[in-house]
């Protein structure tokens, strides 16, 4: 593995002021995509020397069962609401979910959602993998999602946000089009990779439901207000050059009974505003790449 670099050289510096104008279809100013994380966590996974899977000795009953709420209940609640308001999902998928609970993956596929890989399990981390191991999880992701959904994955969000310095190069080499792992911008960015090309699409930690509820300790209604403010601002600024807003979700959080009602206001607001291009990650990347030629 190459030596650690203090500047990873991911992209060129490009100030917000004076950028060329990105234009979204039909003159929309903000491309909005929803990223449900459809995950499977293991009850008793092997240890990665760089990070513990669970804060508690196994079984971590609350940690595991909270997340299992997603597949039994809250995915269905969240997905139904998204469909009702016309929001497709671009799924950050623990691909082993295709094996364990194919019902959830089939439901997302049948709703016309797009899939990208979020690793095999959210309890297996990339830290410390050699190149062959990392290629194995990328190849596994491509094959598993293709078998389960007929789709070839185009994007990647590292499992539990764990990377190696070669991950982005490998994604481009395998022909993936986008990464959700970089948080430097409100517009897509071309990423420097060894060969091929790769686009960073804005995902978000700051308005991720996990951050909203467990880092910023927001109430459900405060989180809904946060998303609405995020959208309103990006839709305003997008008149100058099209912006991207991602709503990254974990159904076991947003789909809890005290939260899902407040979230519906967000979808109503964005869908009713008129300036939102409500779409998938792949469509945003395509539009960006067409405008980059």
């Amino acid at each position: 593995m190459s030596a650690q670099k203090s500047d990873p050289g991911l992209y060129e510096y490009q100030p917000y002021r004076g950028r060329r104008k990105l234009v979204w279809p039909e003159g929309k100013t903000c491309a909005v995509w929803v990223a449900p994380n459809l995950e499977f966590y293991e009850l008793d996974p092997p240890a990665n020397p760089n990070r513990k899977s669970w804060p508690k000795p196994h079984p971590d009953v609350v940690g595991y069962s909270h997340r299992d709420h997603a597949n039994r209940i809250s995915h269905w609640r969240m997905a139904e609401m998204m469909s009702r308001h016309g929001f497709p999902g671009s799924v950050s998928l623990s691909v082993a979910l295709c094996d364990h609970i194919p019902e959830v993956v089939a439901d997302a596929r049948d709703r016309g959602w797009e899939f990208f890989s979020h690793g095999i399990y959210n309890t297996r981390y990339s830290y410390g993998m050699d190149e062959a191991q990392e290629r194995a999880i990328i190849e596994d992701s491509i094959a598993t999602v293709e078998r389960a959904t007929g789709q070839r994955i185009r994007g990647w969000l590292a499992p539990a946000l764990t990377h190696t310095p070669r991950t982005l190069d490998l994604l481009a080499e395998y022909g993936l089009d986008y990464t959700c792992d970089l948080y430097h911008d409100d517009q897509p960015t071309q990423i420097n990779v060894a060969k091929g090309s790769l686009t960073a699409i804005p995902y978000s930690l700051e308005v991720n439901d996990h951050y909203g509820f467990f880092i910023y300790n927001m109430s459900p209604r405060e989180y809904a207000d946060t998303l609405i403010r995020q959208y309103d601002r990006l839709a305003d600024e997008g008149a100058n050059s099209g912006t991207v807003m991602c709503i990254p979700l974990h159904s076991y959080l947003i789909g809890q009974p005290h939260r899902i009602g407040a979230f519906e206001r967000v979808l109503e607001h964005i869908a009713g505003d008129g300036r939102a291009w409500i779409t998938t990650a792949g469509a945003i990347v395509d539009s960006f790449e067409e405008q980059s030629v």
């Binding site: 009850l43 082993a96 364990h100 993998m129």
Partner: peptide, 12 residues
């Protein structure tokens, strides 16, 4: 670490 003996239909 990249073997998954419980990767099958249903819970683990």
């Amino acid at each position: 670490y990249i073997e998954y003996p419980k990767r099958k239909r249903g819970m683990d």
